[in-house]
Simulated assay, not measured.
Amino acid sequence: MTDTLDKALAAARDAAGAAADIILHYWRNGVDVITKGDDTPVTVADRESELAIREILSRALPEAGIYGEEYGADDTSREWLWLVDPLDGTKSFVRRTPFFATEIALMHRGELVLGVSSAPVYGERMWAVKGRGAYLDGEQVHVADTAALSQAVISTGNVKTLTTDARWGVLGELIRESNRIRGYGDFCHYHLLARGGVDLVIESDVNILDIAALAVIVREAGGVFTQLDGGPIGLESRGVLAGTPAIHAAALARLHGATMA
Rank of each mutant, 00 (worst) to 15 (best):
E79V: 13
P120C: 02
E103G: 08
G72M: 11
T76Y: 14
P98N: 02
R109Y: 01
L114D: 10
R95M: 07
R109A: 11
P120H: 09
G110T: 10
G68I: 04
A119V: 06
S117L: 03
V113L: 12
W80N: 01
Y67V: 02
T97S: 01
Y122P: 06
E69G: 06
G68V: 04
M126K: 06
G89M: 05
W80F: 12
R95F: 07
D75T: 11
F100A: 00
F99W: 08
I66A: 01
G110M: 14
L114H: 00
L112I: 15
T97R: 00
I104L: 08
A101I: 07
L81I: 05
G110E: 15
W127E: 03
S118C: 12
D75H: 14
G131V: 13
Y67I: 01
R132A: 13
V129F: 12
I104H: 04
A119M: 12
R125F: 03
F99M: 00
I104P: 07
G89N: 03
L106R: 12
D88E: 09
I66V: 08
S77K: 15
A128G: 05
E69V: 10
Y67D: 05
Y67G: 01
K91T: 14
A119W: 14
L83K: 06
R78V: 05
E70I: 06
R78A: 04
V129C: 05
A105K: 14
F99C: 00
L112R: 06
E111G: 10
R125S: 02
P120A: 03
A128I: 11
A119Q: 11
G115K: 05
L106W: 15
H108P: 13
M126C: 02
W82L: 00
W127M: 02
V113A: 08
V113T: 09
E79Q: 14
D75E: 14
V121G: 00
R78C: 06
E124A: 06
G131I: 14
D85K: 07
V113S: 09
A101L: 04
G68H: 07
S117K: 02
E124V: 12
S77D: 15
V113K: 13
W127I: 01
L87C: 12
M126I: 04
W127Y: 15
A105C: 12
W82N: 00
Y67Q: 05
P98C: 04
Y67A: 06
F100M: 00
L112V: 14
V129K: 06
R95A: 07
V94M: 08
A105R: 14
E79D: 15
R96K: 03
R95G: 04
G89Q: 04
T102Q: 05
E70N: 04
Y67W: 08
A128M: 10
M126R: 07
T97A: 01
